[in-house]
Amino acid sequence: MINWQRKDLLGLQDLTADEIKLILDTAGPMKEILFRPIKKVPVLRGKTIVTMFYEPSTRTRTSFELAGKYLSADTVNLAMSTSSVQKGESLKDTALTIEAMGADILIMRHEATGAPHFMAKTVSSRVINAGDGMHEHPTQALLDMFTIMEKKGSIEGLSVAILGDILHSRVARSNIWGLTKLGAKVKVVGPRTLLPEQFRQLGVETYYSVEEAIKDVDVINVLRLQRERQKKGLLPSMREYSRLYCLTRERLKLAKPDALVLHPGPMNRGIEIASDVADGLQAAIEEQVTNGVAVRMAILYLLMGGNRDEVAA
């Protein structure tokens, strides 16, 4: 496959393995641009990218903005109220405004599942889901997969553990769809209150013991634990969570010796991941940030009709 066919990128559930590979293959040459003295190519000159984040996330938004700038697009950040719908204008009115502005690409994060899908149906701009509720975060999963490909050569046949608050994680869901489509074996592990048994129906193995889950895996993707889970009664204490689930050096030894450690950031050091693991040789957490820009460049480029072979040349 050489060309992207869809209007939007809303999630990995709907994508084929070929579409995922197209993005990952295009991200390689994009990453090379990042190491040039002048990090700018003119492929999206004259195009307008609007970012709209209903949940604050400087990391992801900046990553998209840089990706757009390196491709010479104009990027505009719409400051959205972070609270829910009662205040401010409805999503429908926002959509009509966006439509009138004539943005080429709309990048949207929202605390409600399906909000980018609603937007995609309503506006003619191309919509990229930068995270919707607990549903999907496709660009994060794609950058995780790109990092795995770089380090391991291929995803097929790998054994990947996803560790932490699976229930509330859109990163976990998108990773599960993407990794299983590309032929990895996925294990998810976390406390039972944060890991509904229905996950088994997604073709993954579920574990409550981190020791059992990470035995001989090639990759461990550690998720961020939100402190509010304890307040909601889903966990007795952060202390107990970290005793049972923190990825420590001792636990990491159970995985393959060259196992790769990923974390979507920002990290709670000492809670879900020990500092020495986060800073250790097996972690690729900073590289994930660089790769995030490359993958997002690839997505912007493909959505605007770019062709993988052009950029490779």
Binding site: G114, G133, M134, F199
Partner: peptide, 11 residues
């Protein structure tokens, strides 16, 4: 409904 569909949608 809590089930497979709510799990994949994150609802």
């Amino acid at each position: 409904h809590e089930g497979y569909i709510s799990t994949i949608l994150g609802f």
